[in-house]
């Protein structure tokens, strides 16, 4: 069966005055119906740009150079802007990190959740109201907040409203980009609970972006580890957690603080800037392993069904 979303060989470059460099390279991702795929990486690893590429909302200076993004039988990168609007909000919903920035301060919460229904389904404000109140209940917002404005809500309530907006038009894919990073731990637990419910009730597919492996482990089926604009490892969540193959994933897993350790096992060095990546394997300067071919970029290979890794140590 065709997956819901299928990204093949995507490459995105940034052209800035005086320099141009790749921010995404050789990206392959597919998400099936009802599947949750987690994209994990540090700042600059390309996770947000992956989301923006799917939505065709890349910032100025960024261009898709290679690859295709297939969504439900349509190739999105070659779609005219006008056609793309049918997909944003209607087919693909998006939740951002900062709920404060995703809401318009001068419109009521209820109206903002209703907007996708008005735009995509042509409902009137009045007829949308009942649907909106149902959605508000589903995302855990009291319907009395229909006429409230964003500043009257707490951080967690705002994120619930943004999730309400994202699922209002009943999309089949939800992209959530660090949706709990701006929230407190106890509120984060509430929002994660909400995502799990939405997935179960609506059969939503979710692309969940985060820097936190332990957080995504609560919801994801598949995990993709990114570093320097490239996928380094991919596999079913339990396989990757219990048996990480890439030295970068291994380092990340080990550096999770645990009591009893005297020191934290650490990855040396710093994340290199994308315009100044080492040649060959992008992780080689920080890697504990060393193979003869590390000066050449390793390909992403499937070493077992569904299990991919980009490292010279795992090429049969």
């Amino acid at each position: 069966m065709e997956p819901l979303l299928n990204i093949r060989g995507l490459r995105v470059d940034f052209n800035l005055p005086g320099r141009s460099f790749s921010v995404l390279k050789d990206l392959h991702i597919s998400i099936g119906e009802g599947e949750v795929l987690a994209l994990v990486g540090e700042s600059g690893s390309g996770k947000t740009l992956t989301a923006l590429s799917i939505m065709q909302l890349l910032p100025e200076g960024a261009h898709i150079l290679e690859g295709e993004i297939w969504f439900k039988g349509t190739e999105l990168t070659s779609l005219p802007e006008k056609e793309m609007r049918r997909f944003r909000g209607r087919e693909i919903g998006m939740v951002f990190q900062e709920p404060g920035a995703a809401l318009n301060p001068v419109f009521s919460i209820g109206y903002q959740i209703a907007e996708p229904l008005i735009i995509h389904y042509g409902l009137s404000r009045k007829t949308a109201m009942n649907r909106v109140k149902d959605i508000m209940k589903q995302v855990g917002l009291p319907p009395e907040l229909y006429h409230a404005y964003p500043h009257m809500l707490s951080g967690g309530q705002r994120q619930r409203a943004v999730i309400g907006m994202a699922v209002a038009a009943d999309p089949s894919l939800l992209i959530a980009d660090e949706p709990t990073t701006a929230l407190d731990v106890t509120v984060e637990a509430q929002i994660m609970d909400l995502f799990v419910h939405l997935r179960e009730e609506r059969g939503l597919s979710i692309l969940f972006i985060s820097h936190n492996i332990e957080l995504v482990a609560q919801i994801a089926d598949i995990i993709v580890i990114m570093y320097a604009g490239r996928i380094q490892e991919r596999g079913p969540i339990n396989d990757v957690i219990n048996n990480p193959l890439h030295p970068y994933t291994q380092g990340l897993m080990k550096s999770i603080p645990r009591r009893g350790h005297k020191r934290l096992p650490q990855i040396p060095g710093n994340v290199p800037p994308l315009w100044d990546l080492p040649s060959g394997c992008t992780f080689k300067d920080r890697c504990k392993e060393r193979y003869t071919q590390c000066d050449q970029e390793p390909p992403l290979v499937e070493i077992a069904p569904g299990r991919w890794v980009r490292c010279w140590g795992h090429q049969q």
């Binding site: 707490s154 309530q157 106890t186 637990a189 609970d193 332990e214 482990a217 999770i256």
Partner: peptide, 25 residues
């Protein structure tokens, strides 16, 4: 107790019960 139970961990399946607090600070 709630704070500790909300920390996401990898040993989720060991039967630890999450306490989800209502509301916010």
């Amino acid at each position: 107790q709630a704070l500790i139970s909300s920390i996401p961990t990898l040993d989720e399946k060991t039967g630890r019960k999450k306490i989800i607090l209502p509301g916010e600070v």
